[in-house]
Amino acid sequence: MANYIKLRARLMRDDDIAFGPGKAQLLDAIESTGSISAAARELGMSYRRAWLLVDTMNRCFREPLVHSAPGGKHGGGAEVTEAGRRIRQRYREMEQALRDLADDFEKSLENELN
C-alpha cells in the first residue's frame, strides 16, 4: 500500500524549529565529517545555513547539541554532543512511532481509498 500520509514532525520552541528531520540529518553529517562546513557541503547547503541551524539547536536546548571550534592554523571542527545524540535518537523514535501510527490508520482505510 502506498503511503498516503506524509509526516514531518518538528519540535518547536516558541517560534523556532528546535529540531526536525533536516537538523537530524545535519547532526548525522557533522558526526560523520567532524565539521560544520564539510557537513554543509555533504548536504548541499551553505555553511551559513548549517551554522544557523546549529545555532538554533544550541539555543533551544539546555545543553548544546553541537560543540564547535573555529578553524585556523590549528584546524577546528565540530562534534555532536551526548545531548545531541540523545535528542536525535529520541526524535527518530518519535518519527518511527508516528509512521507506525499512520500505517495503521492507512490500513484501516484501505478499502475506502482509491
Rank of each mutant, 00 (worst) to 15 (best):
T33E: 13
D28L: 13
D55V: 01
H74V: 00
A40M: 12
S35F: 04
I87E: 05
S37F: 06
G76S: 11
G71S: 10
L113G: 09
M57G: 06
Q89V: 06
E95H: 09
E82F: 11
A18N: 10
A2Y: 05
E112P: 00
G84P: 07
K73I: 01
L53H: 11
S37T: 14
S35W: 11
Q25F: 10
A78S: 10
N111P: 02
I17H: 04
A102F: 12
L7S: 08
S108A: 13
L101K: 07
L98D: 01
L11H: 01
E106N: 03
Q96G: 05
I17M: 04
R49A: 15
A9H: 03
F61S: 11
H67V: 13
G34S: 08
L43P: 05
P70S: 14
E112K: 09
A78R: 00
N111R: 12
R88G: 00
S68R: 00
E93S: 12
A69K: 03
F19R: 07
P70T: 05
G75N: 00
D55E: 14
D100C: 13
A40F: 12
A40H: 12
E31F: 09
V66P: 01
I5L: 14
L113C: 09
A78L: 02
A24C: 06
G44I: 12
I30S: 06
L11M: 07
R41T: 14
S37H: 05
A83L: 09
K23W: 05
G71I: 00
Y4H: 01
S32W: 02
G77K: 01
D55F: 04
A83W: 01
F19G: 09
S68D: 04
F105P: 01
W51T: 05
N111V: 13
E110Q: 14
R88H: 02
K73G: 04
P64C: 08
F105S: 05
S108Y: 06
N111M: 08
E112C: 03
I36F: 06
R88T: 03
R88A: 15
A2L: 12
I36K: 03
E31N: 09
D104C: 10
I36V: 15
L26A: 06
W51K: 07
T56P: 00
S68I: 01
G75S: 00
L113A: 07
A97I: 10
R90H: 05
P70Q: 11
D100Q: 11
M94A: 08
R62F: 03
R59F: 08
M1W: 12
E63H: 12
G72N: 14
Y47K: 05
A50N: 13
R59A: 15
L65G: 02
L26D: 02
C60Y: 02
M57E: 04
R86L: 15
G84D: 02
E93V: 08
C60R: 00
G77Y: 01
D55W: 06
E42Q: 14
D104K: 15
H67Q: 07
S35A: 03
R85C: 10
R86V: 07
A40E: 11
N111H: 12
R48V: 15
